[in-house]
Design a protein around this nucleic acid. Structure first.
Lengths: 338, 338
DNA sequence: CTGAAAGCGCTTACAG
DNA sequence: CTGAAAGCGCTTACAG
């Protein structure tokens, strides 16, 4: 079952492979009868072009790489889906690279992406390593960094203003009269997580309050971390009256253990999440959260990447694009009981 | 910034490209000093092999395609993540093809996968079309079909015994004393959805009950469908006392509108879901559901696929592997109030 | 133990 | 308007 090649088609149609190639790609005029003959030959032989060969010759693979830290995190799953969609509309396939928050895996994937000659990559970094991004850009691959900044001016960057978002989230809690506020954070060292906490601290400072260090619990953006974080918090001698959980999955986990321990949300404890995943409005209580503009982020990241891929070259100005999150008030936050 | 090629390395090390190739792949013995020279040259030049060229020559791309009907469905997102993982461990990248339940998109993706010469594909079909699977296998690509059967004996198939699972789910509801049971289903025509309903009908029939046709509401496995389905159900003159929702996302949606309409789950209404997504135990009430063996399904599907890829050839016996779901009782179901 | 050379299936200057 | 031929960067028989 040998695959039929362009040569077979050419022979069948009585033309050269050059002509076949040109009718496929529309790259030069071909007389109508000839064109028809070629098309007929392709159909008869069930010809499917081999894009590996094309890529080797043309230097483009019509494939982009997408590096995400954790594909089971709904936020990343969602962004992946949207990027896949936009890529598809523009004729690009995406290779899904889930680094699993593992720098070694990320590094191997970077090698794979370079070896596979992807036309570009959207890079959401697992850790603080700058090396992977450096290797990628050094190989000449266009990159746009998303969600988590990598402090190198080697690529376009699309980020959320996490500090401002943290400020707004905390402001909401403060407006409700809460003063003893806790945070369940993302993995240590991850920019967005730290910045959200910073924003929270600023909001508190403005009202003469301080974020108690002992109420900053390290998490990792998984449900389990939310479960455990809330467990720890409620075991404290003087638990908080509100908690800012840095993503929705952990928030749902946190609310679940609160309930298990007989602590009612929002009556006894307010919880605000982050991301506004699809399930946020459907859980009980419906989650108050900071909505990320996922679609916008996906569009901008993919759009910039495709532009960069197509921009013949080379004095491309890397830009930093900052998006805003929006407070969505639902049921999981309420005024502090006086 | 021209990429350095094997020729550059060969020149630098004073050997032939054949030798460079053999030290990279370990395909024949090379004297130690020569080997070291080659390795040094590669390092000095920052050489990264071009796997496009390798693929063209060797006929393998070390890439598999994964076709899923809806990447925003948590069940598929989860299975995708696990397949990516197993692929990675075995040296394969995965191209994520989200058909979005759109047969035209699925068809285009099949063409892309053939053109890109993927070594194999795991195929979860969007609709009832057999044509895509036929084209894929006709091109000589190893395929394993998962989750949704495609009635052709062209590929290994890994399925859940959905009929049995539906039977068990309904049995649980019946054991609790429910007799008026509703279903919120998946998209019309999707095998697993229909089979779960059939199982439910069998369980009811065994107890002399009948599944009221008007209580079978068509859904599509999205939260919104769950929201709407429950809305319709509760507006009925005589609503059911229990509902079998064919996936967890819809079940969460359904519970959400029940609550909004003042109907308490499980006191007034029992709800059982399907899948056992990660969030199922964390929502309120914690979801009773049928747990799918996702990891097992991913392992078997990927394992069979890799075997098939490596099996030199050609009298491969396609197998059908049937897995079982397991009832997980949590809080969303309870005995019917007498 | 190693090298020279063919060839994978395309695209694209170069001729005519 | 079309074809002959080079070449993309590898791997792998074939010689020696």
């Amino acid at each position: 079952m040998k695959r039929t090649t362009m040569k077979d088609v050419a022979r069948r149609a009585g033309v050269s492979t050059a002509t076949v190639s040109h009718v496929i790609n529309g790259t030069r005029h071909v007389e109508e009868p000839t064109r028809q003959a070629v098309i007929a030959a392709m159909r008869e032989l069930g010809y499917q072009p081999n894009s590996i060969a094309r890529s080797l010759r043309s230097g483009e693979t019509k494939t982009i790489g997408l590096m995400v830290p954790d594909a089971s995190n709904l936020f990343f799953a969602d962004i992946a889906r949207r990027i896949e969609n936009i890529g598809y509309e523009n004729g690009y396939s995406v290779i899904l690279c889930n680094s699993d928050n593992d720098l070694a895996k990320q590094q191997e994937y970077v090698n794979t992406l370079i070896a596979k000659q992807v036309d570009g990559v959207i890079f959401i970094s697992a850790g603080e390593s700058r090396e992977d991004l450096e290797r990628l850009t050094a190989s000449g691959t266009p990159v746009v960094v998303a969600d988590r900044d990598v402090p190198l001016h080697l690529a376009d960057v699309v980020l959320l203003d996490n500090e401002a978002a943290g400020y707004v989230a905390a402001g909401h809690l403060l407006d409700l009269g809460h003063e003893r506020i806790a945070c369940i954070t993302g993995p240590p060292g991850v920019g967005p997580s730290m910045q959200r906490v910073t924003g929270c601290q600023r909001a508190m400072a403005e009202r003469g309050l301080r974020l108690d260090e002992s109420l900053i619990l390290p998490g990792d953006f998984t449900i389990q971390a939310g479960l455990r974080g809330m467990e720890t918090l409620l075991d404290r001698p003087s638990p908080p009256t509100a908690v800012f959980v840095l993503n929705d999955m952990m928030a749902i986990g946190a609310i679940s253990t609160a309930r298990r321990k007989g602590c009612r949300v929002p009556d006894d404890l307010s919880v605000i999440g982050f991301d506004d995943i699809e399930l946020a409005p459907a859980v009980n209580p419906a989650l108050t959260t900071m909505a990320q503009p996922v679609q916008e982020m996906a569009e901008i990241a993919t759009g910039r990447l495709l532009e960069k891929i197509h921009s013949s070259d080379s004095n491309w100005e890397n830009e930093q694009i900052i998006l805003s999150a929006e407070l969505v008030v639902r049921e999981s936050t309420a005024a502090r009981k006086s």
